[in-house]
Design a protein around this nucleic acid. Structure first.
Lengths: 201, 201, 201, 201
DNA sequence: GATGAATGAGTTTTCATTCAT
DNA sequence: GATGAATGAAAACTCATTCAT
């Protein structure tokens, strides 16, 4: 049954890519992007260097894979929230909280990945793509709020960019500080500012 | 008078460092961070490669110098605004607008510098330091607003991080897009959100 | 009857080697000698890479096989002509014409093989062997002419080397030029020069 | 006097290129083209690997340099002979003899270079260029003979290709054999064949 | 102090060969 | 016998840093 063999091959392939992914994440966490050599990735993944090239055509492809595999769940969560039937304010809060949780759970990877997202080179393009996708979804929610009258008539795209950057900035600051912050205070502060602003009245 | 000679030496030193700075900025703008080799910097600065090492102990030190020299005016402007006697809301707006202007004027350099600010390696530490300084100043303003009752009682530091990141994110998005945005709409949107929030009421 | 099984085995073996030969020729024609990887040969031959090593001990052995199998018919044709009862002048012409025809028919392979014949490495030895064999045959014909008085008393071996190289050179030039030349003019020119020389008298 | 310094620099540069040339020739003679790694060339030239790249942009450029530097004198000698006022038959003989002498004097280099001239890769183009140049000069002489009536009306280009290849073939055979042949018999045989042909009458 | 040639460790990528299944 | 994933030894090229002049 060739079908079965093909499936097995696909499965094994996927497991190897995963193993390499794990190795790459470990190396990124320990040595940073510029310290992530193929030698180290291979060693961390427990395979020979040449084997990396059986699963990824180049270092670039490998890094892109790592990026996408890490970021994908976040994008999907955003889309799910956008498609839900909560109020726009609730969507903003849910998204923000979702980001915080997911990123904190994958702290090690994100610490590197977020930090290097805008670096030149391969990751840049992958990063720009995913960033644009996220901003579109967020801007959609904001625009929805603007149109329903719930939100003031501001440029939805600018606000979306701003919100995403603010969230990333908060997480980065937390990472830098080293200490773990309270999920509630962090997200509530961000949401409070974006929904109601700093001003008191 | 050895004093005079020492002063002259210091002056010449400083001029050389400036020339090298100019060269480095030009190279960064043209070739990006990863394309900024010492060879190119020396050529652009019009000095021999070996001379770079008479003024900077290493490439890292040189890049740190570039970073600080570029970012310094921003920090000083922040401090001036913080020390002024405008209302906190006005201070927020003035700062935001100041960032936008300065960064746009030095677009080429910032496009590289901002984009690579958080990369691991040399720039990281310089970047963290300057970021912390900025956040302290901004947080000071916000705290002032909180204490005066103008602002709601939110965690000033978190908000400051968030505001700075949001501003950077907006500028980055503009750089990425390639087109120049209107200073007014950009800053007004950001300020509007941070002062009054998205919600309509 | 083990005899039968042995014969079958030999037959199957020979068919596999042929299939691999076909694949190798295709790869050589498409990718050249340096692009002829075992991966590509295996793919072109429709077998697994590992199987190549069941029929050839090494890449070198495989390439040698390709060379010999390609060149063999030429050598045999030379021998047939040498053994025929034409005049020596006719033999020279027949051989020359035979080379031209055969090589042009297998243009793709020869373009690679001839071009790389003298390269160091594997092919070198195979090439030298076959070249020596050819030269012996040609020199035999010339010597025959010398002894019969038809040819002037020149060093038969030197002339044979010279004639073979001249023919190869002409074909190479034709390959380089890209255009197909007339079989008649090409061979007649070569034969005319070798038999009667450039001088008009 | 900057002129002087520039001249010195050019001189030193040229000496380094020569030293590297020597190293490359030694490596080619010992290990052949495919064994000529940059590591080995550097070692043979007594410099660090990186230094090679201060004088040649790439391995290809280096190899091309080796080729041209080796072949150039031959081309110039050909041109000088072509421009002389000897009879065409004398020119043919002088050229042939000149090739033999020069090549035998630089035996080690040519053994590799000639053998690899038509290999794919960098040398191919350099080789084709120089070969075309030579053939043009030779064909010019032959055409001159045809027009003056001294030579029979044969295709000058074909004959030129043929003559050059024949000479190369003879030298190659000599190299292969290992023993040194008599310059007189070798060149006289070749010239005799090309001028008067094999046939006796 | 200025110069820039020399250095060599470090990086990515390729590919013949092996061997467990 | 067939398979093809795993291997790891090379190889070309880069560039921060040093140091003799």
């Amino acid at each position: 049954m060739p079908n079965l063999m093909a499936r097995r091959k696909t499965l094994v392939d996927s497991m190897m890519r995963d193993a390499i992914y794990q190795g790459a994440v470990a190396v990124l966490a320990e040595h940073g992007l510029s310290g992530a050599t193929m030698d180290r990735v291979a060693a961390a993944a427990g395979v020979a260097k040449g084997s990396l090239y059986n699963y990824f055509r180049s270092k670039d492809e490998l890094l892109t894979f790592v990026h996408e595999k890490t970021i994908q769940p976040l994008i999907e969560a955003n889309e799910a929230i956008a498609a839900s039937d909560h109020s726009v304010a609730e969507k903003i809060e849910a998204m923000t909280r979702g980001w915080y949780r997911y990123v904190c759970e994958h702290r090690a990877t994100f610490q590197i990945l977020v930090a290097n997202m805008n670096v030149e080179g391969v990751l840049r393009e992958a990063s720009i793509r995913s960033q644009k996708a996220s901003i579109d979804v967020i801007a959609g929610i904001i625009q929805q709020g603007v149109e329903s009258g719930e939100f003031r008539p501001l440029n939805a795209k600018y606000v979306a960019e701003t919100l995403l950057a603010a969230a990333k900035g908060g997480l980065e600051a937390e990472f830098l500080e080293g200490s773990q912050r309270s999920e509630d205070e962090t997200t509530e502060t961000l949401v409070a500012v974006f929904l109601h602003g700093l001003c008191a009245n």
